[in-house]
Simulated scan of single mutants.
Amino acid sequence: MKLQDIMQGKKEWRAHMARVKALPQDYQIVYKEIQKYLFKVGPVELNESTGLLTGIVDLFEEGAAMKKGVLEVTGRDVAAFCDELIKDSKTYTDLYQESVKQAVSKAIKKDIDKQKP
């Protein structure tokens, strides 16, 4: 990755966060919780693009403009809202589950190979 790409990414992130800071306080709080949730369990491609996060800010800006409370936009279960957003995406949880399955399969295969005469 070029230095210019890194600088451009930082510039875009700062602009994104400026939009978040312009939201009403309740929206900011929920956005930050969504962001933490998605960074922990969310889609692998989240790190490659801020598209999903930008979409959430777009949605929040629309909700705020219509004078809706943030929970009217997301629903009371914010984690379920997040899960619905990423339901068709590969998550870090999926990757970890795959690696565990592979490790177990490999260990079992080694054990079976040792038992063969």
Rank of each mutant, 00 (worst) to 15 (best):
Y92D: 09
L59G: 02
S89A: 13
Y96H: 09
F39S: 02
L59D: 09
R19H: 06
I56Y: 04
G42T: 12
L53S: 01
I108L: 13
T50S: 04
G55V: 00
M66Y: 15
G55W: 01
E98D: 11
T74D: 13
D88Q: 03
E72H: 11
E84G: 10
V70G: 15
D77H: 10
Y92V: 04
A79C: 05
H16I: 09
D26G: 09
K116D: 07
L59Y: 03
L95D: 03
G75H: 04
K2P: 11
Q25T: 13
S49W: 12
D94A: 03
T91C: 01
L53P: 05
D58T: 06
A18I: 11
G55N: 09
A15I: 02
P43Y: 07
D5N: 09
D26I: 08
R14E: 06
K21G: 10
E98I: 00
A15W: 04
A79G: 08
T50I: 10
G75T: 01
K106Q: 07
L52W: 05
I112G: 09
V104S: 07
S89F: 04
Q28E: 15
P24Q: 09
V70L: 08
T91V: 02
W13F: 14
E33C: 08
K109S: 09
H16A: 08
T54L: 09
I6E: 08
V41M: 03
K40S: 11
Y27L: 11
I56A: 05
K116I: 04
I29H: 13
G9A: 03
P43M: 13
L95N: 04
Q28S: 14
V104C: 05
L71W: 09
Q102F: 12
A80K: 14
Y96V: 15
K90M: 07
K114G: 02
Q97I: 00
I6P: 00
K90R: 05
Y37R: 09
A107E: 14
E33W: 05
S99Q: 14
P24A: 08
E61F: 01
D88T: 07
W13Q: 15
L53H: 02
A79Q: 13
I86M: 02
K32E: 15
I29N: 15
K106Y: 15
K101I: 09
Y27Q: 14
L95W: 00
S99V: 02
V41C: 06
Y31K: 06
M66C: 03
P43A: 06
K40A: 13
L71C: 08
I34H: 01
V104N: 10
G75Q: 14
Q25H: 14
D113N: 09
D83Q: 11
I34G: 06
D111Q: 14
K101E: 13
H16Y: 15
L95G: 14
P43W: 05
A65I: 00
K68V: 05
K110E: 15
Y96P: 01
A107W: 07
G63I: 00
R76C: 12
A22P: 00
V20C: 06
K101G: 03
S99Y: 02
N47E: 11
G55Y: 05
E98Y: 01
Q97Y: 02
T93I: 14
E84V: 02
A107P: 01
G63A: 08
V73G: 12
K11Y: 06
L23F: 08
K11N: 03
V100N: 03
V73W: 05
K21W: 07
V73M: 10
L3Y: 10
V78A: 06
S99L: 01
F81D: 15
M7K: 11
D5W: 12
A64S: 12
T74A: 13
M17P: 08
A18P: 08
N47S: 05
